[in-house]
C-alpha cells in the first residue's frame, strides 16, 4: 500500500486536468479503496472488536474487499454518480482518483486485482513489502523504511514542483468554479476556511510523512532498506 501518495496525488492530477475534474471527487476517489476497509485490515478493539484472520488476502483479494482496489470499482462509482447527479467532473474525478490509488498499490508485494472480475490474479511490481498483517505499528515502520517512503517523497515533490496548485489563486480560479459542492460548503464556511479545506490533504499527508519518519527513525531505530522489495527485516518476521 501507499500512504501519503494517496493524499497528494490528487493535487498533481488536478494541476494537469484543471477544471475538467472535481478536486474533491479525485480526493475521495483516491481514498475510497481504504476509506472503510483499513480499520478491518488492522483490526479494532475500541467499542467493537473486529479483525480479519488474513489481512493480506482480505485487503486485496476475493473473497474480501479486494475489488475496491480494482479499476472496476472506479468505473462503478463513476457510472453511479453520472446516473444520479449527472456530473461529469465528479464522475471523471472519482474514476481517476480511484485508478490512481489502484495503480499506486500495485507497487507493493500484495498487488491489486487490476482485471477483476475477469481474473483474480493480482498485479504487483513488488517494490516494497506489504506488511499490514503484522499490525499497524510494524506496517508503518516497514513502509517508512522502504522504497515506499521514496514513493511518497516523489509525490510530495511532484506537488511542490507544481506549487501553484496549492495557491489561493488556483483554488479560486480553477478548483472552486469546477465544483458546485464548494459553493454549497461556502454557505456555512468563509472562503479562507474553504481554502484550508482544499489544502488540508496536502498538509495532512506531509505532516504524517514527517511524523512517521521521525517516529520510526528518531524515536525508534528501525533500519532503512531502500532495496527493491524492502525492507528485508520485515520479511524475516514472516
Amino acid at each position: 500500500m501507499s500512504w501519503v501518495a494517496h493524499d497528494v496525488e490528487p493535487y498533481v492530477i488536478v494541476r494537469h486536468l484543471g477544471g475538467r475534474v472535481s478536486f474533491l471527487a479525485v480526493l475521495i476517489g483516491s481514498w475510497s479503496p481504504d476509506l472503510v476497509t483499513k480499520w478491518m485490515v488492522y483490526g479494532v478493539t475500541t467499542g467493537i472488536s473486529y479483525h480479519t484472520d488474513d489481512p493480506f488476502e482480505f485487503h486485496r483479494g476475493w473473497p474480501g474487499v479486494g475489488p475496491l482496489h480494482s479499476p472496476v470499482f472506479g468505473i462503478a462509482m463513476a457510472i453511479a454518480v453520472l446516473l444520479i447527479f449527472r456530473s461529469h467532473p465528479w464522475a471523471w474525478g472519482l474514476l481517476i482518483g480511484q485508478w490512481a490509488h489502484a495503480f499506486s498499490d500495485t507497487m507493493d508485494s500484495n498487488g491489486v486485482m487490476l482485471l477483476f472480475p475477469f481474473t483474480e490474479t493480482r498485479t504487483s511490481v513488488d517494490a516494497w513489502t506489504y506488511a499490514a498483517e503484522h499490525g499497524r505499528t510494524l506496517d508503518t515502520a516497514a513502509y517508512f523504511s522502504s522504497p515506499g517512503l521514496l514513493w511518497d517523497c516523489f509525490w510530495v515533490g511532484m506537488t511542490l514542483v507544481r506549487w501553484r496548485v496549492l495557491s489561493a489563486a488556483y483554488f479560486r480560479d480553477t478548483v472552486l468554479p469546477a465544483d458546485p459542492v464548494w459553493g454549497w460548503t461556502g454557505r456555512y464556511l468563509p472562503p479562507q476556511a474553504l481554502l484550508v479545506l482544499y489544502r488540508a490533504a496536502f498538509f495532512y499527508g506531509t505532516g504524517r510523512l514527517v511524523a512517521w519518519v521521525l517516529w520510526a527513525h528518531v524515536l525508534n531505530s528501525y533500519e532503512f532498506d531502500f532495496t527493491w522489495g524492502g525492507p528485508g527485516w520485515v520479511k524475516d518476521l514472516e
Partner: peptide, 17 residues
Amino acid sequence: LIPALLEVSKGHPEVSE
C-alpha cells in the same frame, strides 16, 4: 452561489490575486 463566493473571496486578503 459560486459567483457570489468568488466575489467574497476576491476581497479577502488571504485569497489574493
